[in-house]
């Protein structure tokens, strides 16, 4: 099995699972969805790239994840402000 496709399928499966559960729970929250996607992609990237080598197709993935982390920070800030404003 090719690692790249495994990774893509795993991520897609994960996202599908998350959205499926969200729909079952009838709470579709974009922020939670984003955070769960971020967690998923982090884990998958960590699994795919071992300590020795990172596949070429994952080279720019790091940037995606890094920007995801920043976005995550923004979400956290938003949540804090929402709670404070209450």
């Amino acid at each position: 099995m090719m690692k790249k496709h495994l990774a893509i399928s795993a991520l897609a499966g994960w996202v599908l699972l998350v959205s499926g559960f969200m729909i079952l729970a009838r709470t579709l929250d974009l922020e939670i969805f984003f955070v769960l996607w971020l967690i998923g992609i982090l884990i998958i990237v960590e699994l795919v790239s071992d300590h020795a080598a990172t596949p070429r197709y994952l080279r720019y993935q790091r940037l995606v994840i890094a920007s995801g982390v920043i976005l995550f920070g923004a979400i956290v800030a938003r949540k804090i402000l929402e709670i404070l404003a209450r």
Binding site: A66, S67, G73, A74, A77
Partner: peptide, 18 residues
């Protein structure tokens, strides 16, 4: 301040990751 702090923290986190 909270927004800036949070963004800084996450930016730092992203930096560490890279």
């Amino acid at each position: 301040v909270i927004l800036a702090a949070s963004l800084c923290a996450s930016g730092f986190g992203a930096f560490l990751y890279l």
